[in-house]
């Protein structure tokens, strides 16, 4: 494999619910995953198999119990499972793009700004970042009259598309996509497939969850099957 970008080894993750008498829910059990630049690995498995949890461990949003979650940043490999908050935030700024299942709207910030902000934070001139943001919003069929409004009042599908635009507005070396096509119509699904494929071709390492089998087949270089897990231990 050329240019390995993600190297997950022996990752286990469980939740201990202290409010429920300390019941422990295992989610991931010794998962290995290696992804190279220009590869799109699709996670497949039944609901509860830990697909989203694996993406969240890669993003530093969930803590790993054991194992390593190494990603390649600009200054070399970083083990997200062991890195401090500052190192993880730095990775998120330059390396890790993440599309979650819903947009966390910020009061008063217009859609165009939401999409352009990550690029501006990374030093792209605001004019360039905003032009790119408008191009993506148009491509994802967000009506122009909405661009200057905060997305809090948008429909679910519109919010999801703003969210997608935000993550494709920068050329992240690693993209984590958690059902980016959920709640989208066929036309917009096709756009997301095209954006994902273009990102892969420019060399992004992509890990994604796509429930739609057709979408999955269109974007996947490889599929990783995650087995269903027992409910509790």
């Amino acid at each position: 494999m050329t240019d390995l970008m993600i190297d997950v080894a022996g990752l286990s993750k469980s939740f201990t619910l202290h409010q429920q008498g300390g019941v422990r829910l295992p989610v991931l059990d010794r998962v290995d995953l290696r992804v190279g630049a220009g590869e799109c690995v699709v996670l497949r498995g039944p609901s509860g198999a830990g697909k989203s949890s694996l993406l969240r461990c890669l993003y530093g949003n969930y803590l790993a119990d054991t194992g390593s979650v190494r990603v390649r940043g600009p200054d070399g490999w970083v083990d997200v499972a062991a890195a401090g908050p500052r190192a993880i935030l730095q990775l998120r700024r330059g390396t890790l793009g993440y599309v979650s299942q819903f947009l966390r709207a910020i009061p008063r910030v217009p859609a165009e700004q939401v999409v352009a902000q990550p690029a501006i934070d990374a030093g792209t001139p605001p004019d360039t970042a905003c032009a790119r943001a408008r191009e993506l919003l148009a491509r994802l069929n967000i009506p122009e009259r909405l661009w200057h409004l905060p997305p809090a009042t948008f429909s679910g599908g519109e919010q999801q598309r703003v969210n997608v635009a935000r993550s494709f507005a920068r050329d992240y070396p690693i993209l984590l996509l958690d059902e980016p096509t959920a709640s989208l119509d066929p036309e917009n699904k096709r756009v997301v497939v095209e954006l994902t494929e273009a990102a892969r071709q420019r060399g992004a390492a992509i890990v994604g969850i796509f429930h739609d089998a057709e979408v999955r087949e269109a974007v996947a270089s490889r599929v990783l099957d995650l087995p269903a897990r027992a409910e509790a231990a």
């Binding site: 201990t16 202290h18 969240r56 530093g60 949003n61 969930y62 803590l63 908050p85 993880i88 935030l89």
Partner: peptide, 12 residues
Amino acid sequence: GLTDQVLDDPQH
């Protein structure tokens, strides 16, 4: 810890 990690995956 990181804000979203503490809020989404609190340990204590």
